[in-house]
Nucleic acid binder design. Sequence first.
DNA 1: GCCCATAGTGTCGAAAAGGATACCGTGATG
DNA 2: CATCACGGTATCCTTTTCGACACTATGGGC
Lengths: 117, 117
Amino acid sequence: MARTRHASLDCSPGCAVEATLALIDGKWKGVILHHLGEGTMRFNEIRRRLPSVTQRMLTNQLRELEADGLITRRVYAEVPPRVEYSLSERGRSLAPVIRALKEWGDEHVMAALQKAA
Amino acid sequence: MARTRHASLDCSPGCAVEATLALIDGKWKGVILHHLGEGTMRFNEIRRRLPSVTQRMLTNQLRELEADGLITRRVYAEVPPRVEYSLSERGRSLAPVIRALKEWGDEHVMAALQKAA
DNA sequence: GCCCATAGTGTCGAAAAGGATACCGTGATG
DNA sequence: CATCACGGTATCCTTTTCGACACTATGGGC
């Protein structure tokens, strides 16, 4: 499922830009990475922070992030089940990018929304 | 067309991250902004840099970027027609974000592709 | 007279994304 | 005995995305 996007990265100089975007687009991945930046969390903990994401979507996005090596998934053989998610080394290296996105958004989007209200 | 994405920005702290992503996702916008960072360009000039984008898609993405206030479109009443695109003030302010995306991609994605080849 | 380039637009249809809902096993709790 | 919480799956269906292709107007060159 998914991961078809940009199978061929055929652009020359801007390629890297799209390659990075391909990893963090997908409607929820950006926020998930942002939240996981605060530390390890379990499934429903993340879910509570994203009020409007469905279980199916959250599973999906987490699986893709894992497949891309950005997060780590640790399952504990317990009942009730416990699954913890955390940023991988690679995921942590994305921090500056996430921060840049957040800062720009705070300054140029959120501010505009304030005014509109 | 489009622009439905994230009509309701209901997340709390990561909201700004998604808000920014909503502006630059869309398969080609990232690269377009990257290229326009080099200066004003006309339609077919951009198109030549993006070998695999269709005319329809390019028009579409440019219109969305314009609607979001990131680029400026100047039409000259000439024949054959001439239309020039350039970054707006707001678009230029995105430069650090684009740069962050590109740098991460160069380091963490392109490098991996080199090895694979 | 015909074709070229420019900067598009319109329509079609396939594929992907994503939402709703129901279901799973287990152990604790009421 | 029934119910809840956990971390998911499975299935269905609607919406969105996006590529292919055809079409437009105009003026210049051959």
